[in-house]
Simulated assay, not measured.
Amino acid sequence: MKLAAIVRRSFIAMFWGWVACNISIIPAATVVCRLEDRPLPVMSEVFVMFSLYSVPVVLLAWLFVFLPVDLAVPQRSRLRHRCIAPLLGGISGFTAMGFYAMMDRLLHPGTFWKETMRALSEPDSWPYLVGASVCGLTASLHLVLHHPRQEQAGVPASLSDNPPNDL
């Protein structure tokens, strides 16, 4: 399969992951505000700001995580199964955002695991963890649904006579 085709399909999949991430942040932020008895922010402002600030994060996640995995995992791998790929995408999104949220704690290696658990238990980090999980899940699901793996020998699905509609 051509490199340009793989880059294009993974970018489109990550775009839909970004869209789903932005949609999921509103209910997640609402739940956190309700749990902590904080006033609800103006959701349109939250949506616009999160959408703008998430663009570089999602682009870097695509460039350093999603694209290399798409290039490295063979077309016929079990990891591309429609049940396994979204699960792994959601887990990797959650894990990547969890590590990103704890980068300042890496400077103090003696307290890494204690600080990791504390960061994950803080409700302020939940919307970001949910958004990252939904982004990875949606991108992986889009990829396996629009470019399914081939069970038998032959041409990969993305090079078949009737290419799938990416959008």
Rank of each mutant, 00 (worst) to 15 (best):
residue 139 A to Y: 00
residue 21 C to W: 01
residue 101 A to T: 13
residue 34 R to D: 01
residue 80 R to A: 00
residue 167 L to N: 07
residue 23 I to L: 14
residue 133 S to P: 05
residue 52 L to A: 15
residue 80 R to E: 00
residue 128 Y to M: 12
residue 100 Y to N: 10
residue 64 F to G: 15
residue 19 V to Q: 01
residue 1 M to L: 12
residue 87 L to W: 05
residue 42 V to D: 14
residue 40 L to Q: 15
residue 60 L to S: 07
residue 25 I to T: 15
residue 99 F to A: 11
residue 88 L to G: 07
residue 106 L to Q: 07
residue 109 P to Q: 12
residue 46 V to D: 02
residue 138 T to W: 02
residue 71 L to Y: 10
residue 140 S to K: 03
residue 135 C to N: 06
residue 60 L to N: 10
residue 40 L to F: 09
residue 107 L to G: 13
residue 69 V to G: 01
residue 13 A to V: 01
residue 82 R to L: 11
residue 74 P to D: 04
residue 20 A to V: 06
residue 109 P to N: 11
residue 86 P to W: 06
residue 18 W to I: 02
residue 13 A to Q: 01
residue 145 L to A: 08
residue 109 P to A: 09
residue 85 A to D: 05
residue 110 G to W: 03
residue 115 E to S: 15
residue 129 L to G: 02
residue 41 P to T: 09
residue 157 A to I: 05
residue 44 S to M: 13
residue 24 S to W: 11
residue 98 G to S: 09
residue 66 F to P: 01
residue 139 A to K: 03
residue 19 V to G: 03
residue 17 G to A: 02
residue 90 G to Y: 03
residue 35 L to S: 12
residue 132 A to T: 02
residue 29 A to I: 10
residue 149 R to V: 08
residue 127 P to L: 04
residue 35 L to P: 04
residue 13 A to E: 00
residue 137 L to I: 07
residue 159 L to R: 11
residue 97 M to K: 14
residue 12 I to T: 06
residue 26 I to F: 07
residue 32 V to C: 06
residue 132 A to H: 04
residue 56 P to H: 10
residue 24 S to Y: 05
residue 30 T to W: 07
residue 53 Y to I: 11
residue 87 L to Y: 06
residue 145 L to E: 10
residue 103 M to P: 07
residue 84 I to D: 06
residue 26 I to P: 08
residue 102 M to P: 00
residue 153 A to G: 10
residue 155 V to M: 08
residue 128 Y to S: 14
residue 82 R to Q: 07
residue 160 S to H: 09
residue 105 R to S: 07
residue 115 E to P: 03
residue 28 A to T: 08
residue 51 S to H: 12
residue 86 P to L: 04
residue 69 V to Y: 12
residue 49 M to I: 11
residue 96 A to E: 00
residue 71 L to F: 12
residue 142 H to Q: 04
residue 141 L to F: 12
residue 162 N to F: 00
residue 122 E to F: 14
residue 8 R to K: 13
residue 78 R to A: 09
